[in-house]
């Protein structure tokens, strides 16, 4: 009996609310999926249709055979991965410095990172375009990797600084007593414990890069075409390819979801490992 009430309680306080939130989060996505398998001519048949009568995979085959969506996925994957690695490398070191050292100009620099983030970046396009042209990196992966990594730095530096701050400093001291220098103390002791935070920041940078449209549309052209550009191409002046667009949206979310599914296993085990060491 007792076990039984426990199950009911778990359902009411845990499973049901989680289910509702998951439904809310995925509802529009599921609806997108339904749209993507609805034949174009049934789309506006009248009123709302919850399930298509003649489901079709045509939009998905068009996506890969005629639109070359695989190429776009590849470009996005390259850009987002490198932006993530590059952005992390810079922001982890920067935030470790902010978190663990007192030095002249620390606060102004920290605040500076915040203030430059407040300006609407779409207004920076023209000068940025000029700079990228001067460096001859416009329309290359490098342009986007640099842009995304950099625009994520203020954010991830602040994020990581808080995560590092939450780790007791005694651990650093202990590491030094155990024979680590300042660099190895960071790499061997602090970073492993901060792994959940690093993973969260990594996800942030990756997703931001994955979805970014404005910079991609201006800084790249023929050779680099990320997913948002491909999707935007389906929104014409007088016509929206709704079926293709929703199919593209459904497909583009999948790699990130899978990636996150694996990262978070790492994330949990990373945490436990850190806790053991701590």
């Amino acid at each position: 009996m007792k076990k039984h009430t426990g199950v009911i309680r778990a359902i009411i306080t845990l499973h049901l609310p989680v289910l509702l939130i998951v439904l809310f989060a995925t509802g529009p996505y599921i609806w997108s999926f339904i749209s993507s398998i609805t034949p174009e001519k049934d789309m506006y048949k009248g009123g709302v249709s919850y399930f298509p009568e003649n489901p079709t995979t045509r939009n998905y085959s068009r996506l890969f055979s005629k639109i070359n969506f695989a190429e776009n996925l590849k470009d996005s994957l390259i850009v987002a991965t490198f932006a993530m690695l590059f952005g992390l490398a810079m922001s982890v070191t920067a935030s470790y410095s902010f978190s663990r050292f007192q030095f002249k100009g620390r606060k102004p620099l920290l605040i500076q990172f915040l203030v430059i983030n407040m300006f609407p970046i779409v207004l920076l396009l023209v000068p940025l375009f000029i700079i990228m042209s001067r460096f001859h990196i416009r329309d290359t992966y490098i342009a986007l990797v640099f842009a995304y990594a950099t625009f994520s730095i203020p954010f991830s530096t602040w994020m990581m600084t808080s995560f590092f701050n939450a780790i007791p400093r005694e651990l650093d001291e202990q590491a030094k007593i155990d024979g680590c220098n300042r660099f190895t103390a960071m790499v061997r002791v602090v970073i492993p414990i901060a792994l959940p935070g690093i993973a969260a920041t990594a996800i942030y940078i990756f997703i931001t890069a994955w979805n970014e449209f404005v910079f991609a549309s201006v800084l790249t052209g023929k050779s680099v075409r990320t997913i948002p550009i491909a999707l935007q191409n389906m929104v014409g002046q007088y016509q929206i390819e709704w079926g293709l667009l929703t199919a593209g949206g459904v497909v583009s979310a999948i790699p990130v979801i899978i990636l996150f599914f694996f990262i978070q296993k790492q994330l949990i085990s990373g945490m436990t490992a850190g806790a053991v060491k701590g």
């Binding site: 396009l125 023209v126 000029i130 549309s217 201006v218 052209g221 935007q232 929104v235």
Partner: peptide, 23 residues
């Protein structure tokens, strides 16, 4: 011919940016 397809929603802005930036 190096043809490049630009999404409609970004077209005007991109053209203006490129013109203003001189390329």
């Amino acid at each position: 011919i190096e043809a490049e397809r630009v999404p409609w929603d970004a077209y005007h802005q991109r053209l203006l940016t490129a013109v203003t930036a001189g390329s």
